[in-house]
């Protein structure tokens, strides 16, 4: 076991998978010198060279389109689209080709592409370097959406995403890059299957489904709620697609109450889809209406004080849970 940051965990996963499978290649901007965007690709160019670690022009369309063509012909590419907002540039590749080609070809073409991308507010980076597109991404059929909240999960999930024979997007939150966030990571290899939720804290009164940074905020809220004698169970789905709905239903059976806390505008959110599924499939176990805690339907504001208001936080969760009980 060694204490590992999120970035180190991602870097280890990349080294292990590039070593394991010579067909794994990486395409992205600034991956050579900076190991960009934040250093998770450091060392890969030196070890695997310009053929497998491809420093591209600023061309998201060519990065993702190129990854599709390479995947169709035997490679297992990782396409780095620096920030989720930049997916807008290669929207055609994402929406019309990466995720429709297999179906339209009658199953003849396999596209094992992993997109890696950043998102997340909290840095005052402005909307183009903070936005969450989770609602949009989960609505694209055939795209697996991976949303790790810890270094341990990040490593195991990224390895599974790369090995998966389907298009996958691996989303990292910028606020999880801090050095103080560390997990003990085993020395031996491990993977975490896509579609398996993790109970981050056991509890009995309310089920809180939270993702990414919101898991950490929920954990901190749980401490405060415990002081008031309220026990929440925190479930981290870890992947939004495929969704481990059984884990959520099992928890709701126990608690009878559900809060879904995600960092994304509310309308059309991944949280909305998840809430609808639980309302349809576990209505009889619910003692109160499901509550969603999301961001308002606005772009992410720049000014720190506005951004703080925009992001869901502990107080929002404490208020929602207290009201439900």
């Amino acid at each position: 076991m060694k204490e590992t940051t999120f970035l180190q965990a991602v870097n280890e996963a990349l080294f292990e998978e590039m070593e394991r499978d010579p067909n794994v290649i990486l395409l992205g901007e600034d991956v050579r010198i900076w190991g960009a965007p934040r250093g998770e690709f450091k060392g890969l160019f030196d070890k695997y060279g310009p053929e497998r670690v491809i420093d591209t022009p600023i061309s998201e369309t060519a990065i993702l389109g190129g990854a599709i063509g390479a995947a169709a012909t035997g490679m297992r590419p990782i396409a780095n689209i620096m920030y989720s907002s930049f997916l807008g540039v290669c929207g055609d590749e994402l929406i019309n080709h990466l995720t429709q080609t297999r179906y339209m070809s009658g199953g003849k073409i396999k596209l094992p592409v992993t997109i890696m991308s950043y998102f997340g507010a909290g840095f005052s980076a402005g909307a183009h370097h903070s936005s969450s597109l989770h609602g949009l991404l989960v609505s694209i059929p055939a795209l697996k959406v991976v949303v790790p909240s810890t270094p341990y999960d990040a490593k195991g999930l990224l390895k599974s995403a790369i090995r998966d024979d389907n298009p996958t997007i691996f989303l990292s939150h910028q606020m999880l890059m801090r050095r103080s966030l560390k997990d003990p990571i085993p020395d031996e290899e491990y993977t975490i299957p896509l579609g398996k939720a993790d109970v981050k804290r056991e509890g009995s009164d309310v089920t809180v489904v939270a993702t990414v940074l919101m898991v950490h905020r929920a954990l901190s809220a749980a401490e405060k709620l415990e002081e008031k004698g309220i026990s929440i169970e925190i479930i981290d789905p870890r992947t939004l697609v495929p969704l481990d709905k059984q884990a959520i239903i099992d928890s709701v059976k126990k608690t009878g109450r559900l809060v879904v806390m995600t960092e994304e505008p509310s309308t059309g959110s991944a949280a909305s889809t998840l809430s609808a599924i639980i309302a349809e499939e576990a209505f009889d176990f619910l003692d109160a209406p499901i509550k969603r805690i999301n961001a308002p339907d606005t772009p992410v504001p720049f000014s720190p004080i506005l951004e703080k208001v925009w992001m869901p936080d502990e107080e929002d969760l404490i208020a929602a849970v207290t009201e439900m009980i």
Partner: peptide, 24 residues
């Protein structure tokens, strides 16, 4: 590899196939 209903979409995809041919 495919035929695309959106004008120009095949361009980067063909480039990716050529990349793969080169790597292999």
């Amino acid at each position: 590899i495919g035929a695309y209903g959106i004008v120009g979409s095949g361009i980067p995809i063909a480039v990716g196939a050529a990349l793969s041919a080169k790597l292999r």
